[in-house]
Design a protein around this nucleic acid. Sequence first.
DNA 1: CCACGATTGTGAACTTATTCACAATATGCG
DNA 2: CGCATATTGTGAATAAGTTCACAATCGTGG
Lengths: 206, 206
Amino acid sequence: MRKISESTVRRLSLYLRFLEQFAAHGQTTISSAELARRGGTTSAQVRKDLSFFGSFGKRGLGYSVTELAAKIRDILGLRRTYRVILVGAGRIGGALVQYPGFRQRGFHVTAIYDKDPHKVGSRWNGLVVRDVRHIEADLAKEPTDIAIVVTPAEAAQDVVDRLVHSGVKAILNFAPVQLAVPADVVVKSVNMALELETLSFSLSNR
Amino acid sequence: MRKISESTVRRLSLYLRFLEQFAAHGQTTISSAELARRGGTTSAQVRKDLSFFGSFGKRGLGYSVTELAAKIRDILGLRRTYRVILVGAGRIGGALVQYPGFRQRGFHVTAIYDKDPHKVGSRWNGLVVRDVRHIEADLAKEPTDIAIVVTPAEAAQDVVDRLVHSGVKAILNFAPVQLAVPADVVVKSVNMALELETLSFSLSNR
DNA sequence: CCACGATTGTGAACTTATTCACAATATGCG
DNA sequence: CGCATATTGTGAATAAGTTCACAATCGTGG
């Protein structure tokens, strides 16, 4: 397959969200122009994004809302559900476990780990927090593709090494460090402070 | 000023983080190559990013860690501190208020608002949750540039309208909706589920 | 004080992403 | 059925972002 840009994937994700909203309102077809309006982009961009994967519309008519949604789910790999483990039972971890958006989209948090003995054993949203040292053994029994890392910066690389060693292939990282992983593992880092800094930049430059 | 790309700003933010780490280790100078290695980019990229704002290095030597950090803080508008208000006293809101990264970087959460009468009045990290209907009056007394919106999707646009009306110029939005704002207000939307979906895409395409 | 190794700053080349623009349909209506 | 209208799919044009490559310059050591 041709190399698909990150921005295209993010937009597809957005389009899917809008399609679901349209479906909920009983709308059956949608034009690229309308999708673009909602997503803050252009109709040409919408069509180009989709064109990398096939042609899903009808000229003169637009797209079938449900068909296109199904197609995008397919493209994004959202037909299946994913087991997700979470490392770091802090406040952000807690918020994430309970975040309904994950489950709605098929991401099921199946285990929570922490290093702190005070946290190990407590219940979180129906899950018992386990000691990080069980990661390897647990994942050997229950292979898991995705992990969310919400540890302090110092602990993150060590945790990631163990996750990678245990077969985790995708990591959503909230720790403010650049993580080193093998080429076949994908890391996506999110950093709240950095988002605020881009806002600060915008504020200072106008 | 020349138009600066979002990616450049994000990278500057990253460089700043690394520079602070280097400073903490007592390192006094740094080369673009080393900064690039840490940030997962190239030395040319680092120099180009900086070149949009001036020339801060010494040929043959590199950059002074503290000087460059100061320069980037300047560029990003981080010399000052920012008052930040938070709308939505849910779990994510709670996690964000306590997130040390914000305060460290000069973003001070000064007020929390919610619509739910059960939440209004409770204390959160030393702040009393106030009713959203006080936003206008409060901001008239204490002008605030930045707001973080962590409301349900349905409520977000309404809240944003009131924020904009009250003079807020930058919004970090966690609600899964596209927000409409005037041209002089900047919105940055963050969506956790979307991040996981990009991971899902990567997993399905290799 | 000159030659050498290191490293910046930056135009130019290249690559990637977005927008344009239009032929190719599909529908509906008289 | 044929014309008017809507809207896709896509090559070509444009714009934006990244990498290359090299002259400029700094510090050092003989």
